[in-house]
Simulated assay, not measured.
Amino acid sequence: AERADELSARYGNVTKPSVGAIQRTLLVLEQQGAANFFGEPALRIADVMRTTRDGRGAISVLAADKLMMNPRLYATFLLWLMSELFEELPEVGDL
């Protein structure tokens, strides 16, 4: 909040109440285990997208039963996963 003016110059209007709201949300995620979940080394999309020796795709299943007990953390993970897929996978258009 003390650097709101500096952040506003870089990212647009960032008010002190906005910074407070972001901090509260980050605190909730941290209490749900985000510090351990989003730590290093980071999960790589390539780790769950593999092919077999004959070039066929292998299915990876993420067991997220415990993660689903923390809805905000689970939603944050899914958003992160979707953004990584969007950034990493090639765009091929209509096949």
Rank of each mutant, 00 (worst) to 15 (best):
L95A: 15
L62V: 12
I22S: 13
A63D: 15
L79M: 14
V28S: 07
E88R: 10
G57D: 08
M69F: 01
V14G: 03
A21R: 14
L27R: 14
I45G: 03
P90V: 06
L29S: 03
D47T: 04
V61C: 04
W80G: 02
L7H: 07
R53T: 08
R56Y: 06
A63N: 15
L81N: 03
T52V: 03
T76A: 12
T52A: 15
G20E: 13
L85D: 00
R53V: 06
A64T: 15
L78G: 01
R72I: 00
A4K: 04
R56K: 14
E84V: 11
V92E: 14
G55D: 04
S18T: 12
L95R: 15
V92I: 15
A63T: 07
I59W: 05
E87N: 09
A63I: 07
Y74D: 01
V19G: 03
S8R: 05
E84C: 10
M69T: 15
A9M: 09
L85T: 04
S60Q: 03
L78V: 12
I59A: 09
F77S: 03
P41W: 08
R44I: 02
A46Q: 10
G39P: 05
L85H: 04
D65S: 15
R72N: 12
V48M: 09
E87V: 01
A64D: 14
A58M: 13
Q23S: 12
V48Y: 04
A1Q: 14
P41K: 09
L95I: 15
S83W: 04
D47I: 01
V48Q: 00
L85K: 07
S8Q: 05
P17V: 08
A75W: 02
P41G: 08
A4T: 05
G20Y: 07
M69I: 06
E40W: 11
P41A: 09
E2V: 07
F37D: 01
L26E: 04
L81W: 07
P90A: 09
A75N: 11
A75F: 06
V28P: 00
A9K: 13
T52H: 11
L26M: 10
N70Q: 12
I22E: 10
D47F: 01
A42T: 10
R24H: 11
G20T: 13
A1N: 13
S83N: 11
L62A: 13
S60Y: 09
R3V: 11
A21I: 08
P17Q: 08
D5G: 08
N13E: 14
